[in-house]
Design a binder for these strands. Structure first.
Length: 471
DNA sequence: AAAAAAC
C-alpha cells in the first residue's frame, strides 16, 4: 500500500514523496480515503502515529479542488496549544507546496495585527487555538459561516485544559452542513458526547497507543532521593553516562524547569528551556535553538509533552514522574519517533512511587529499574588534577555497561573533590573552557542565594552518593 | 498537586 492508492492528487503525492515519505501509516491508510469522500471521522490516535498528515493531506486536496477565491475561511483546525498549531501550519506548508492555499495561524501570545491582515485577505485554512479564535471572533474579525470543514485535534487534551465549552461555542458558529473530523488519544464520556453532538455518522478509526506499542523506546526507572539537588546529580550522571545527542528533560513544574536549566548551564551543558511562563517569541526561539542543534538539551514543562515532533531526540528524561500516566506516554513519545530508537529515563523519588504504579498500570508493563552506583567515587577521586569540564560534556560512556544482565548499574562519573563551599563558584575561575558562557554574565549577577545548591560540588558530598541507589 | 490557554 502506497500513498498513491489513497486517492490523493498527483501534486500532493509529489509533495509527500519530496518530503521523504513512501508508505502511509495505519491511521493515514484508514482515514484519508474516507475524509476525501467527505465523511465525518473520529480518530482515536495521538501524534507519532502520523495523525497530522492523516487530516492535512486530504484537506489540501479537498480545498484545492473547490478553489474559488477564498473570501471567508473555508476550513478550521483547532489545536490545544500554540506549539501544536504552529506545527500543523508547518505541515500545510510542507505538503501544500504544489497548491496555492492560503492559511492563517491564529494563536495567542503574538501580535494580532498580522493575523487580522491575513484574515482580511481571505484564507483557505484557519489553524487556531481556541482562546485567540474566540477573541478575534468577538472583535468581529472572523466570519466562520464559510467553514465547511472542521478539525478538532487532541480533543481529550482540550478537555483537560477546559476548552470544551469554547469548542462547543465555536461549533455553533460553523455551518451545520459541514464535514467534521475529531481526533483524540482517549475517548472519555465528555468527548464521546461532543462527538455525538457535532459529528454526523462518523467513521471510527483507531490505532494502537504508540506508548504501549512502541518497542523502539527503552524505558528505565532510576530511583533517587527526594531532593532536587540529588535529582540533579543523578541526572548529570545519566547525561554523562549516555551518549546524549539530543535529549528532552521534562519537569512537573515551571519553576523546576527554570532551576534545572540554570543548573545544567552552570555545569557546562548546552541546554534551553520551554514552559508556559515564557512569552511566545521566547518559546519559539528556544525551540528553534534546540531544533537547529545550537543546544542539545531541552528542559521542558508539559507544554512540550504532547505532539511536538522534533527529529532525532535520542533521550527523554522525566526529572519528575508525571502526575498523570497519560502524560508519561506523551512525554516518552518525543523519542523513538519514525522508527528510530530512543531511551526514556524516569527519576523516581519516594513521593513519585504512586505515579509510577499508575503509569505501569496504564502501559501494562513493569519498567526496568536501574541503579545509580555512587559508591566511594567522590572520595577516591580527591585529586586536584581532575578538572572536570570536558569530561562531563563529552558524552562518552564513563563506564562500560558492565553489570549482571538483570540489573544495570550506572556508575557515578568521577568528579573533583568537594572543597569548602566558597562564595564564588569555582568554575568561573576559568580553565574549564567555558568562555562561551560569559555571555550569560549579566544573569549571574542576579543569582539569588538559594541557587547555591545548584553548584553541586561546591558543597559537601551529598550522602546519597555513598550508597547504591535503586530497588 | 501542574500546566496550558485571550488581553
Amino acid at each position: 500500500m502506497s500513498f498513491a492508492d489513497l486517492g490523493l492528487s498527483d501534486e500532493l503525492l509529489r509533495a509527500v514523496t519530496d518530503s521523504g515519505y513512501t508508505e502511509p501509516t495505519p491511521i493515514q491508510r484508514q482515514a484519508i480515503p474516507s475524509v476525501l469522500m467527505g465523511k465525518d471521522l473520529i480518530g482515536i490516535a495521538q501524534t507519532g502515529t502520523g495523525k497530522t498528515a492523516a487530516f492535512v493531506l486530504p484537506m489540501i486536496d479537498i480545498l484545492g479542488e473547490g478553489r474559488t477565491r477564498a473570501l471567508m475561511p473555508r476550513s478550521l483546525i483547532l489545536e490545544p496549544t500554540r506549539e501544536l498549531a504552529a506545527q500543523v501550519a508547518e505541515n500545510f506548508e510542507k505538503y501544500g507546496t504544489n497548491h496555492k492555499l492560503s492559511m492563517a495561524l491564529l494563536i495567542g501570545g503574538v501580535q494580532m495585527g498580522d493575523q487580522v491582515k491575513a484574515l482580511e485577505k481571505g484564507v483557505d485554512v484557519l489553524i487556531a487555538t481556541p482562546g485567540r479564535l474566540m477573541d478575534l471572533f468577538g472583535r468581529g474579525k472572523i466570519l466562520l459561516t464559510g467553514c465547511s470543514l472542521l478539525v478538532i485535534d487532541e480533543a481529550d487534551r482540550m478537555l483537560d485544559m477546559g476548552f470544551i465549552p469554547d469548542i462547543e461555542e465555536i461549533c455553533t458558529k460553523l455551518p451545520k452542513n459541514r464535514q467534521t473530523l475529531l481526533f483524540s488519544a482517549t475517548m472519555p464520556p465528555v468527548i464521546k458526547k461532543l462527538a455525538d453532538k457535532f459529528l454526523n455518522d462518523p467513521k471510527r478509526v483507531e490505532v494502537a497507543r504508540p506508548a504501549s506499542a512502541n518497542i523502539n523506546i527503552t524505558q528505565r526507572i532510576v530511583e533517587v532521593p527526594g531532593s532536587a539537588f540529588a535529582k540533579r546529580e543523578v541526572l548529570r550522571m545519566l547525561l554523562t553516562q549516555d551518549d546524549v545527542q539530543t535529549g528532552i528533560i521534562f519537569c512537573n513544574r515551571k519553576t523546576t524547569v527554570r532551576e534545572l536549566n540554570k543548573s545544567l548551564k552552570k555545569h557546562g551543558y548546552r541546554s534551553a528551556e520551554i514552559h508556559g511562563d515564557m512569552d511566545q517569541p521566547a518559546r519559539i526561539a528556544e525551540l528553534e535553538r534546540f531544533k537547529k542543534g545550537d543546544v542539545n538539551i531541552l528542559v521542558a514543562s508539559d507544554v512540550a509533552a504532547r505532539g511536538l515532533d522534533i527529529k532525532g531526540v535520542s533521550h527523554v528524561y522525566n526529572f519528575d514522574a508525571p502526575w498523570h500516566p497519560d502524560d508519561y506516554v506523551h512525554r516518552i513519545g518525543r523519542t523513538g519517533r519514525a522508527g528510530a530508537t530512543g531511551i526514556a529515563y524516569t527519576l523516581v523519588a519516594p513521593d513519585d512511587a504512586e505515579n509510577i504504579a499508575e503509569i505501569e498500570k496504564l502501559t501494562g508493563h513493569k519498567i526496568e529499574r536501574v541503579k545509580v552506583a555512587g559508591g566511594a567515587a567522590p572520595r577516591d577521586t580527591e585529586s586536584p588534577k581532575r578538572e572536570s569540564g570536558s569530561r562531563r560534556r563529552g558524552g562518552r560512556k564513563v563506564e562500560a555497561e558492565a553489570e549482571a544482565p538483570a540489573e544495570r548499574v550506572i556508575e557515578a562519573p568521577k568528579r573533583e573533590p568537594a572543597p569548602v563551599r566558597d562564595a564564588e563558584p569555582r568554575r568561573e575561575r576559568g580553565g574549564r573552557g567555558r568562555d562561551r558562557d560569559d555571555q550569560h554574565a549579566p544573569r549571574r549577577q542576579s543569582r539569588a542565594p538559594q541557587d547555591e545548591p545548584d553548584d553541586g560540588w561546591n558543597g559537601p558530598i551529598p550522602d546519597f552518593l555513598n550508597y547504591t541507589l535503586g530497588a
